[in-house]
Design a binder for these strands. Structure first.
Lengths: 107, 107
DNA sequence: AGTATGTATTCGGATAAGCGAATACATGAA
DNA sequence: TTCATGTATTCGCTTATCCGAATACATACT
């Protein structure tokens, strides 16, 4: 277990952020926060083709954001770490304030 | 000031995450957290061509993550909201734990 | 005006990300 | 094994992102 260098950590960090940089994937994380779901259920919930969901899940899985568990023929996906949702919520707070700042600029 | 819909908010959120999804831009944010800098100073600090820095700054500016202030011929950039750094630090915490989990899997 | 310094943008080309459609793979039941 | 269901991957294509190099734009000073 070699410690990552600062630059390597930066890269991993950027990779995680990049994984979060797609509306569908954010939707997926919030959906899994409410409850673990298998792929088809996710596809139905988000009204999105199953292959598309699978591709997004692979990205999230590779970055360690979700965790798959086999359940017979199905695969149930879990949020890997609920703290990530709190982080996303914090970001929304900052985002809202940012929007508010811009609005007040208009006045 | 019309309230954004859920989907619009998701898109804005994703856009912010996407802006964070580049190692150089993360470096920039951390550098500006230590102290506001003008473009050339940033370029020197990060050992990166000035046009590259300017392009990254535009992305961060458009997403409301940094704020420019003119100072004569120079433009000093400020971190728009220090909470974003705390959020990034939180993400690093989650990232470290994720790496630790993967390491223990190997054992 | 002209010059120097600092910042932003454009252009061209390489790389990566996204999606729909089709298909391959995995599991469980008959 | 065969079929049905569920999941993952591949293919072809379009769009977006990134960088270096060159260049345009902005400000201050003489």
């Amino acid at each position: 277990m070699t410690m990552p260098t600062i630059d390597e950590l930066n890269l991993l960090h950027a990779n995680i952020c990049q994984a979060l940089g797609d509306p569908k994937r954010i939707q997926i994380l919030y959906a899994l926060f409410e409850s673990p779901l298998h792929v088809t259920a996710l596809a139905d919930t988000l009204i999105t083709p199953q292959p598309t969901i699978s591709r997004h899940l692979r990205i999230l899985r590779q970055r360690g954001l979700v965790t798959p568990h086999r359940d017979g023929a199905a695969v149930v996906y879990y949020l890997a770490d609920e703290r990530m949702i709190h982080i996303l919520d914090s970001m929304r707070g900052v985002l809202r304030d940012s929007l508010a700042r811009q609005s007040s600029m208009m006045a």
